[in-house]
Design a binder for these strands. Structure first.
Lengths: 208, 208
DNA sequence: AACGGCATTGGACTTCGGTACAGTGGGCAA
DNA sequence: TTGCCCACTGTACCGAAGTCCAATGCCGTT
């Protein structure tokens, strides 16, 4: 049962079942572990913190793609869903054929934010970002700014899975020096060990 | 100097410099380490392996976003660029204002594939994937299929940066059992240590 | 000249991760 | 019943990772 459809009250829709006969139903509070693709219907309330909801579900989904469904799609909400880690945002009343197409795209690593939404979205983001505080460059790269040049070199290798010994060989320094660099990085970025460091460097976690 | 523009021969264009007066030039073979955003012009040849080129540059860029530039944009090539890890794909003759907007979006974690291209692209992906071999679901999730239920639980926590002790506490088992699970995962997925394991689980590396 | 930041290294130490060799118990299929 | 897989645990060992207390040399600023 690869597809799980979650809603506030656990109720599902005919179109979902027609799209994926072997789907399972669930509630938003509990993400089933058996599903490989999670669909979550936005609760009907007027104001939902979509980013937080998507982030929460995404954390529980843990690697499995999440598609947020909304009955009244809105570009800002789509943005929030993607920001929260969702892989897709689509109309909750979409036809079964559309749902299957979404699953196809998402399943292959793609992103889905609906046909017409896409372009308006881009315009919206460009507008929104242009008026946003000037953090234009280097927001995602915060870790780089706090590290020295050599530390950055080591960081890149570390984030690719290299051991201290390998980093030492590739940077042509001793393992001892690598430990010094790694230690400095852990301190600067507030990480506990090299794995958390790799999450930060790979953009999966925020520094500090 | 946050912006680096790379081309086959190291030559740059006036529009690039007008967009970012403090840009630096470079060749495709060598990605400068000082830049925070990498722009790379597709070599003029008729057939370039865009996915491989983008992947290579992306690996060297190591976390810093990459934008592929093409003088004759093509939706399939855009797909390939994104598949290779690029954050954007845009016309090499784009106006400075457009380039700055692209940088704005990319710098904030967005994706840019050009205005009109976007929608055609989606249609193209859907079409292309529909006729592709039926690997629809579970391609990105290969690691899950090879692990048992408990191993998957441990995998998720591990990939979030938890230590063995923490995993043990959260799964309500002993640290010894966690080590057993982790050991089994390393074996099954061909990883050397938990960091490489996390790269696989987080979709940054391929199993085996 | 004095100072601070950076890169580099050494030695010694503690902790953690990973493995080898065991063992128990439950479920499921031949 | 006899396997086989899975979950779970124990003891013990080794190497990698990370920390602490140093030291040297380079470079740029004050």
């Amino acid at each position: 049962m690869p597809h799980a459809f979650l809603s506030h009250d656990g109720r599902i829709r005919e179109s979902w079942q027609r799209a994926f006969p072997d789907m399972v139903a669930g509630v938003l509070a509990r993400v089933p572990s058996s599903a490989t693709l999670i669909w979550a219907l936005r609760p009907a309330g007027p104001r939902v913190n979509m980013a937080a909801l998507a982030a929460s579900l995404c954390r529980q989904a843990a690697g499995r793609p999440l598609v947020m469904l909304a009955d009244e799609p809105d570009e800002e909400e789509a943005l929030a869903a993607l920001a929260g880690g969702a892989s897709g945002y689509c109309n909750g009343h979409a036809a079964p054929s559309v749902l299957r197409q979404v699953a196809l795209v998402i399943g292959n690593g793609g992103i889905w934010i609906g046909q017409g939404l896409m372009q308006r979205l881009l315009a919206a983001t460009a507008r929104g970002l242009a008026t946003a505080p000037a953090s234009a460059d280097g927001r995602l790269l915060a870790w780089r700014q706090r590290l020295t040049a050599r530390e950055q070199e080591a960081a890149v290798l570390l984030a690719q899975g290299a051991s201290n010994k390998e980093i030492a060989r590739r940077m042509e320094i001793t393992e001892r020096t690598v430990k010094a660099h790694v230690g400095a990085m852990l301190e600067k970025l507030g990480a506990r060990d090299r794995l958390q460091l790799s999450l930060i460097i790979n953009g999966l976690e925020k520094p500090l």
